[in-house]
C-alpha cells in the first residue's frame, strides 16, 4: 500500500469513529431534550396555580396535588435536617482530625459502599428499624430517617469537598496563633466552607425529593388528602403520587393529565433545587478570591 493510500485509509477510519462518537453524543442530548419536551408538553395543559394548591378530589381524578407537594417538601427538609449535621460532622472528622490510616480507609470504603446500596434496600432497612423496631410506624419521621441515611454518603462527600476548598494556609495561620483545633475549625474553616456545604446539602435535598422506593416502604400514603401535622403521620409525596396515578389507579386513563402535571411539578422542583445549589456555588466562587 502506498503512503498516500495509507494516509487516506487512516483519515477514513478516523472520520468514521469520530462520527460514531458524535452520533452517540447527539442521541444523549436528543434523549434529554425529548424527555423534557414530553413532560412539559403533557404537563403544561393541566398545571396551574390551583392545580398546585388544591387538594386532590374524587379519588384523585380531579383537583390538585397540594398535599403531595407539601409532603415531599416536609420529608425532604426533615431528611436534610437529620443528615446535614451528621454528614458535616463526619466530613470534619475525615478532613480535619483524622490521620491517614486504617480507620480512615475503612470509613471511606464504608461510605463508597453505602452510596452503592440500592435505595429499596434502604427502604427495607428503614421499614425494619425505624418503622417496626423503633415503633414510629410508617410515618414522616421513619421515611425521613431512612432517606437521611441514604443521602448521607452524598452529604459527606459534598461537605468534604467544601472543606478541601478552604486553603491550608488558613488552618496553619490559625494554629500558629495558638488556636485550638476546634477554634480553628469553628472560626476559620467552617465560615469559608459553608457555601460549599450549602450547595452539597441542597443537592442532597433534591435527591431526597425525587426518591420514591424507600418511602413506599416507610411512610408514603396512597391517598391522604390532608396536610400532615405530626411527624408520626403518614404523608403523600409527589413521586409516589406519580407512581400511583401512572400504574396503580383504577382509572389510569382518566388521571393521565394529572400524572403529567405531577411529573412536571416534580421535575421543576428538582431542577429548581439544583439551580439554587449551583447558583450558591458560583456566587461564592466569584466572591472568594482564594478559591
Amino acid at each position: 500500500m502506498t503512503n498516500a493510500a495509507l494516509t487516506k485509509k487512516k483519515r477514513y477510519t478516523q472520520s468514521l469513529w469520530v462520527t460514531v462518537c458524535s452520533l452517540f453524543t447527539a442521541i444523549t442530548v436528543g434523549t434529554l431534550l425529548f424527555l423534557f419536551y414530553w413532560i412539559v408538553v403533557g404537563g403544561a395543559e393541566v398545571i396551574s396555580w390551583s392545580f398546585i394548591t388544591q387538594m386532590p378530589e374524587q379519588n384523585m381524578t380531579a383537583g390538585g396535588i397540594w398535599p403531595a407537594l407539601v409532603g415531599t417538601v416536609y420529608v425532604s427538609l426533615l431528611t436534610i435536617a437529620i443528615s446535614v449535621p451528621l454528614g458535616i460532622g463526619a466530613a470534619i472528622y475525615l478532613n480535619e482530625y483524622a490521620k491517614q490510616g486504617r480507620l480512615v480507609r475503612l470509613i471511606r470504603l464504608s461510605i463508597r459502599n453505602l452510596s452503592g446500596v440500592p435505595s429499596i434496600v434502604y427502604g427495607l432497612f428503614g421499614l425494619g428499624l425505624f418503622a417496626a423496631t423503633f415503633g414510629f410506624g410508617r410515618s414522616l419521621i421513619a421515611a425521613a430517617l431512612t432517606l437521611a441515611i441514604m443521602v448521607l454518603p452524598w452529604v459527606i462527600t459534598g461537605a468534604e469537598e467544601a472543606l478541601k476548598a478552604v486553603p491550608r494556609s488558613f488552618r496553619e495561620g490559625g494554629l500558629a496563633l495558638g488556636a485550638t483545633r476546634w477554634q480553628m475549625i469553628r472560626q476559620l474553616v467552617l465560615p469559608s466552607a459553608i457555601p460549599g456545604m450549602a450547595t452539597g446539602s441542597i443537592l442532597g435535598l433534591a435527591r431526597a425529593a425525587g426518591e420514591t422506593a424507600p418511602i413506599i416502604l416507610t411512610g408514603a400514603a396512597y391517598y391522604l388528602p390532608i396536610i400532615p401535622h405530626d411527624i408520626k403521620e403518614q404523608f403523600m409525596a409527589l413521586p409516589y403520587h406519580l407512581y400511583i396515578l401512572a400504574t396503580q389507579h383504577s382509572e389510569t386513563a382518566t388521571v393521565r393529565p394529572i400524572a403529567y402535571g405531577t411529573a412536571l411539578v416534580l421535575i421543576l422542583l428538582v431542577i429548581l433545587l439544583n439551580s439554587v445549589a449551583i447558583f450558591i456555588r458560583n456566587y461564592y466562587r466569584r466572591k472568594n478570591e482564594w478559591l
Binding site: 494556609s169 488558613f170 496553619e172 495561620g173 500558629a176 476559620l188
Partner: peptide, 12 residues
Amino acid sequence: GMVFQKPNPFAK
C-alpha cells in the same frame, strides 16, 4: 508566633 512565606490573611 509564626509568619508564613505566602501572606495568609483569613477571609475576615
